[in-house]
Amino acid sequence: MATINPRETLDRALQELLDEILVLGSMVEEAVRTAVSALKARDLTASERIYEADEKINKKHFEIEDRCIILIATQQPMAKDLRLLAAVIEISTELERMGDYAKGIAKINILLGTEPLIKPLIDIPRMADLGLDMLHRSLGAFVAGDAETARAIPKEDDQIDALYNQVYRELVTYMIADTSTIDRANFLLWAAHNLERLADRVTNICERTIYLATGEQRELDRTDDELIHFEKKYKD
C-alpha cells in the first residue's frame, strides 16, 4: 500500500507560493529594467506600458497574500511553515513596492516629455543592473532557504549607495551651473533614489530569508551611505 504523506497538500501549496514569488520577482525585474531603458532611450510608449505592468504586479501581490491568508486559516501552519508564510507576505509587499518604483521611473520619463535628458544615462542603468542582480539572487536565496547568501547580499548595497552619491553630486553640479536644468535634474535624482531604495528593499528580503531559515529577527547592517553626504555637511 502506498504511504500517505500527511503534508502533501501543504507542501504542494507552499511550493506553489514560492513559485509565485519567483514569478512576481521576474515581473518586477522586467518592469524596472524596461522603465530604466525607456528613460534612457526616451521611449514614452514603453513607459506607458509600465503602468499596465504595475497593475499586473499589484494583482499578483494580492493573489499571493490571499493564498497565504487562506493557508494560515485552513492549515494552521506552525514553526518553519508559519515563518515561510509570514516571510512570503512581507516579501510580496517589498516586491510590490519595487514595482511602484518602476512605475515612478516611467512617470518621470513621461513628465520629461519631449525635453532632452540633461546628460546621457550611465550610472542610473548601472544602479538598476546591480540592484536587479541583487534582487534576483536574494529571491533565489529565499526559495532555497539559504541564510548564508542572504547575509552576504546586502553588503553589495555599498556599491549602489556609492553610485547614488555620484549621481547626486553630478546632478547638483548641473543645477548650480544652469538653473534651467533644476526640474530635469531633479527628475533624474528621483529615478536614482528609486533605484537606491530598491536595493534597500533587497536587504529586507534577505532579512526575511534569515528569519525563515533560523527564526532570528534581526536588522542587517546597513551603511546608509547615501546619507553620508548630508551628514558630513549638516553634522553641526
Partner: peptide, 11 residues
C-alpha cells in the same frame, strides 16, 4: 516552541 522550535524532532 510553536514559531521556532530548537529541536528538529519538535519541528
Amino acid at each position: 516552541l510553536f514559531t521556532n522550535p530548537k529541536q528538529q524532532v519538535t519541528e
